[in-house]
Nucleic acid binder design. Sequence first.
DNA 1: GCTCACTGCTTCGAATTCGAAGCACAATGA
DNA 2: TCATTGTGCTTCGAATTCGAAGCAGTGAGC
Lengths: 166, 166
Amino acid sequence: MSDDRPLDPVQLDAYFALIEVSSLLRHTVEQQLKESGGLSYVQFQLLATLGDAPSGRRRMTDLADGVVYSRSGLTYQVGLLEQAGLVTRAPSQEDERSVVVTITDAGRAVLATVFPGHIAVLRELLLDPLSDDDVEALASVLDRVRAHMRSIPPRSAAPRRRAPTR
Amino acid sequence: MSDDRPLDPVQLDAYFALIEVSSLLRHTVEQQLKESGGLSYVQFQLLATLGDAPSGRRRMTDLADGVVYSRSGLTYQVGLLEQAGLVTRAPSQEDERSVVVTITDAGRAVLATVFPGHIAVLRELLLDPLSDDDVEALASVLDRVRAHMRSIPPRSAAPRRRAPTR
DNA sequence: GCTCACTGCTTCGAATTCGAAGCACAATGA
DNA sequence: TCATTGTGCTTCGAATTCGAAGCAGTGAGC
């Protein structure tokens, strides 16, 4: 099925540049977040996701999906946020298994504190060297890739306990 | 200096898409590497960098720069690769402080084993939904961003032991 | 109502990660 | 030459990460 020829230089370049740019961006952002609000990148993503949500709440599972993260890691980080008073955890009414996480006022406050610096880093590193058209093009291409990725079943789609080939 | 206005939706979208795409890509690639060759992503990057180098050797520092990684983490991972027999470590002749890492034949073999699957994942996730022009555009924009990032002094550029403001 | 498979989350241990501190060599300059 | 500063790497401890296993609660089928 899949094509064994090597990638051409432009494809390789796109790939390497993507990895390097996102790594560097993430590193810098992480540092800014730590300095200005004592947050890790994941914690910021979680708070931001919650801040966007209708009433500031989401189920653990939905959070994990939005953040590309392992379940256990999520439990850990949400635990830290809870300790810090930035979120609240409570079992769902509808489904006794689910846990609903809610952002607190303190959480929103931290978010507000951290945001300006966050945006400044984005501008400085990512946006400054690009024209509006560039940004548009980048968004357009990556949107398409993202949609494609989401539509593909994850590699280990095998359910938890399932007779293999039987 | 920096502009306090919020980002417009397209800019935000470009940013979020960049993060999500690179995270998902990295996750999937990592998994493929682990299955097919028992390598972590960093280990693969290191081997690939060495494989590209003139005579398969590089100093630790140069490796770290190419990979966006902490020094101590590099020491750890190179240690693992050495244990596995995929690289060799030896002090540099010219500078007694430096350590020169060299890829072994076994290392090249693993690289060769892993590569086809690696490329297949790239195609499947990243390249398939894109036209040649899209890839070209992506590479062009990200190249520019990468060059810009490299030209900016790292945030904590302060030398190791330095009187602060004095 | 019961049973059985599934889902949502947490706990556990092992592996990886980072930054700070330490060690040895190098280079500068008095 | 010798002190002083700087550079390259490693070691150390603490924090984070993941996957596997475990524990309820749900829901489908009988």
